[in-house]
Amino acid sequence: MTFSLLHATDFADRLLYKIIPPLKAGMIVLADRYAYTAFARDATRGVDRQWVRELYSFAVRPDLALYFRVPIDMSVDRLMARRVKLKFYEAGMDLGWSSNPVESFRLFQGKVLDEYDRLVDEFGLEVVSAVGSITEQQRVVRALVSQQLQINHVEIPDEQPA
């Protein structure tokens, strides 16, 4: 609960100082993570789903929300490949589900992914498969963004006439 509110406080600060002013100025704001991260993470940590949604009702609804979906095994593999040290909270170690950080991460993030799946329908998130290459993903992203912005002449390399 404390964790959840701490993140909400930080989010409010970011929203009011970094997101709303550029929006008012007519700019495009790209947010790396948004309220949906909190919905997924907090529900996994046992916080009431409805409560978190109402908590964040002060947030601006994004014009487009992209969800990069990846199977849990691939997520674990990618982390291992980068040899990053798993963060205590990111691995949900505080929940005591497993004393092994990798196993704990798999259990915790697996549940987080389940929560994201609920959000896709509830909030109309656009799912981008994050299984493919960065180029493939970027192609999908650009298509979605240009559709949203009503841009018709985007340069997508292999769709251009030779």
Binding site: A12, L16, I20, A35, Q50, E54, S57, F58, V60, R61
Partner: peptide, 15 residues
Amino acid sequence: MNNQPDAPQSTDAGA
């Protein structure tokens, strides 16, 4: 979510 950061609104009674 709505577009008024200063006046959040909610439909469900809490406390």
